[in-house]
Simulated scan of single mutants.
Amino acid sequence: MDATKLRRAIARTPLAPVAAFPKRLARVARHDATVLRTSARWLFTSREHHNYTYDLTRLSREHLAWFVAVTCDAPVAQVRAWFAELDGDEKMRRHIETATATAARRGLADRQVRYARRIGWYAVVRARRPAHVVETGVDKGLGSCVLAAALLRNAAEGHPGRLTSLDINPEAGYLARATPWADVVDLVVGDSIASIRALDRPVDLFLHDSDHSRAHERSEFDEIEAKLAPGAMLLTDNVTATDVLATHAERTGRRFLAYRETPARHWYPGDGIGIAW
């Protein structure tokens, strides 16, 4: 009996789990060794303790391009061009590197600029051309810079817009306090729910990225409804943890899609983008 026939014969016997164990163990060991190497490298080369930054794998980036193309009804080639536009923004890249290196919190931040799923945020703003974007949760302001950069490009093409960034931490947003990005950003410090209630102009694009508890995420989406412009789009950075936006979309008669990113060369499994429109 040749090896193939022997394996097939064993597979039909009670010995099958025992015979398969070495192969299964080898696969798990290879996977775990890769994770351990990646984790060890990150521990000794990165300073980040939350809001991790990384690049996307080539395939994950391509899936994100199609995700934006479908949700924004834009040609996927144009979405890829918007990704490249952000990648090629050397002025902003140098600013982020310099501002990070000189910030008071530089001991907990990496200088290398890595946007991950935020390239999707950029492309959505380029595609939708919103007059007013609201984001909750700012932290260093990396995402704020990305959103502002897209708004500045839109303005240069005749479609001006502004970003209202809400955060409870008065030290948040230090990356977005420099010109020209600060020229289109209104940073509001305070509780996001109270700040949403105080908004005085319609919102075309809303992004939840603050307190990621289910209750708070739900409260933000419930509160923003009264402030939305016709045809507004809702985004969440919490889609890999909750179905809050999906449920909200169904209840309010919207469509919903979710994307999950795959980080390149990083131990973190990644976050995602949920969109309701």
Rank of each mutant, 00 (worst) to 15 (best):
D139C: 15
I10W: 13
D186E: 14
G190M: 13
E217Q: 10
I275T: 11
V146H: 01
D243N: 12
A156V: 07
A101C: 01
V113K: 00
E135I: 14
E217L: 01
A150G: 09
P17D: 12
W121D: 05
V188F: 04
R30I: 11
R41N: 13
D200A: 15
A215V: 11
P14T: 11
V79G: 07
V76A: 14
S192W: 04
D186V: 03
L163V: 06
R254Q: 05
I273N: 06
V239K: 00
G141A: 04
H49Q: 15
R255C: 04
R153F: 01
Y122A: 04
P75K: 04
R255D: 08
A246R: 13
T100N: 00
M1Y: 07
A109F: 05
G173W: 02
R251H: 07
A104H: 14
A194C: 02
R197A: 15
R162F: 00
E90K: 13
D55A: 07
A29L: 12
S165Y: 11
A101I: 01
R12T: 06
D186K: 05
V239A: 08
A116S: 15
D55K: 00
R24S: 12
I193S: 01
H266G: 03
G158Y: 14
T247F: 00
L15Q: 08
D55N: 10
A215P: 09
A258I: 02
T242H: 13
A101D: 01
P269Y: 05
P17N: 10
S144N: 11
V125L: 14
P130L: 08
Y115Q: 02
H132F: 02
A74C: 10
I10S: 11
W82H: 09
G270L: 01
A194N: 10
L43N: 13
A19L: 12
S210Y: 09
A172C: 15
Y122Q: 02
T4V: 12
R8E: 12
T45H: 04
E217V: 12
G88S: 10
Q112L: 00
Y259F: 14
A229W: 07
G88Y: 04
G270Q: 01
R117V: 03
V188W: 03
V146C: 08
T102N: 03
S195R: 03
Q112D: 00
P269V: 10
R218P: 13
G270M: 02
A232S: 07
A77H: 14
P170W: 15
V28E: 11
T240A: 08
R37W: 10
T53H: 12
R47P: 03
N51H: 09
Y52S: 08
D186S: 11
I273W: 02
F256W: 15
R255V: 04
G143H: 03
A104C: 03
P14H: 14
P230T: 07
E223F: 02
D200I: 07
A69N: 08
T236N: 06
G120C: 10
Y259M: 00
P263V: 08
A3I: 09
A276Q: 01
I119L: 15
A178T: 09
A19Y: 15
G161R: 07
L6D: 07
I224S: 06
T262E: 12
S165H: 08
T34W: 06
G161Y: 06
A74P: 02
G107R: 10
D87L: 07
A264W: 04
L234P: 06
E157Q: 15
D73E: 15
V68P: 06
L163F: 05
R47V: 03
A65W: 01
S192F: 08
S213E: 08
E261G: 12
R128T: 11
R129W: 06
